[in-house]
């Protein structure tokens, strides 16, 4: 930290000023002049929180995507289909058992098994052939999409929010003052806060697993030099299968989460695939912190875009991607 400030004094200063402005915007009661130019504070705060929670969802999907890519050099374009599949499975299980947590767990497990099958039956046999693998994943995504359309139809589904997560909570942020001088607090859906919290827990757990455990060490070694790792006697295929299963399972889990606070329908697979592609390109292919950073940026851009420039909101994420590619083509958090 101190090192960073010493090396980049101007950047550090800008970051501190920006953070201070953000904190002030979040905590202060906005003066009327500011409300006139930026709109009401509630809108700003809600866009901020929505962007962060949306980023949390993107992180869940993209972290698996980036992990698989980092280790296996396999751009899994069927990742979005795994998301949608997980969501539908979670919906069915949720309807069946009435429990959201069971739905989460089973979606994770089933989609993880699908991931294992994909790795064992398909990708193992075309190792190192990037183009062929990519084409196979495109084919798989089309097949999955049709199978899902066949079994669930084109309707919109929503995973039922469990009772203990529904409804709003009051956050300690003042959004305005009533005429009596009494402060109006911010109301925010509890389920979104839970999702954000869950994503942070998953992110930290992944970071710990990667940096503090033996398996994590193997994975990191595999990302750096796969051939060397297998030469040292590690059963590298087993590591691949574990990572693929985990990455796919996370996508399935994210499907349930996405189906809870948004909804599921055909086409969602492509949308989420596109978002995770942008996220990992912005963050840097193969990097978990990069995925977190990219997800946050894309989530915030989408939400602030939809509030402050609705017509061009669709473009904004791509503008960011192009900018990152132009300035730092390896991604924001990539080491190489």
């Amino acid at each position: 930290m101190g090192d960073f400030i010493a090396r980049r004094p101007i950047w550090s200063f800008l970051i501190i000023v920006f953070a201070a402005i953000l904190l002030w915007l979040v905590f202060a009661v906005w003066p009327p002049a500011l409300e006139a130019s930026l709109g009401r504070k509630r809108v700003f705060l809600s866009a901020l929180f929505n962007g962060i929670t949306l980023g949390a969802l993107y992180f869940l999907v993209a972290s698996g995507f980036t992990l698989i890519f980092g280790l296996m050099r396999n751009v899994n374009l069927a990742h979005g289909s795994l998301y949608l599949m997980g969501g539908y499975i979670g919906y069915s299980i949720g309807e069946l058992t009435g429990s959201w947590l069971v739905a989460l767990l089973i979606a994770f497990l089933v989609v993880a098994v699908v991931g294992i099958l994909m790795q064992v039956l398909l990708f193992r046999w075309m190792e190192g052939q990037d183009l062929r693998q990519t084409l196979v994943t495109i084919g798989l995504s089309i097949i999955f999409a049709d199978l899902l359309l066949w079994s669930y139809g084109g309707d919109t589904f929503q995973v039922t929010t469990p009772e203990w997560l529904s409804g709003p909570v009051e956050l300690p942020f003042i959004v305005g003052l009533r005429s009596s001088g009494e402060a109006v607090m911010m109301n925010y859906p509890l389920v979104r806060i839970a999702i954000l919290f869950g994503a942070i827990v998953v992110g930290i757990a992944m970071w710990l697993a990667l940096n503090r455990t033996r398996v994590g060490m193997l994975v990191r070694a595999g990302v750096d030099d796969r051939d060397m790792l297998s030469a040292t006697g590690v059963r590298v295929q087993l590591v691949f299968i574990t990572v693929f299963a985990f990455g796919a399972g996370l996508a399935g889990l994210a499907g349930v989460v996405g189906g809870t606070f948004q909804s599921l329908q055909p086409g969602e697979d492509i949308k989420i695939l596109l978002s995770s592609l942008v996220v990992v390109i912005v963050g840097g292919m193969g990097s978990i912190p990069g995925a977190a950073m990219g997800a946050l940026i894309v989530g915030l851009a989408e939400q602030f875009g939809s509030v402050y420039m609705p017509t061009y909101a669709v473009m904004l994420t791509f503008v960011i991607m192009v900018a990152v590619l132009a300035i730092r083509p390896e991604g924001l958090a990539a080491r190489r």
Binding site: G39, R42, V43, L45, S46, A47, F49, N50, L54, R192, Q262, S263, G267, E302, Q303, S306, V307, P310, V314
Partner: peptide, 14 residues
Amino acid sequence: VPLGTKDFGSVIAN
């Protein structure tokens, strides 16, 4: 809002 909007959070806040 676009047809097929998923996330109405900001719209609702607005």
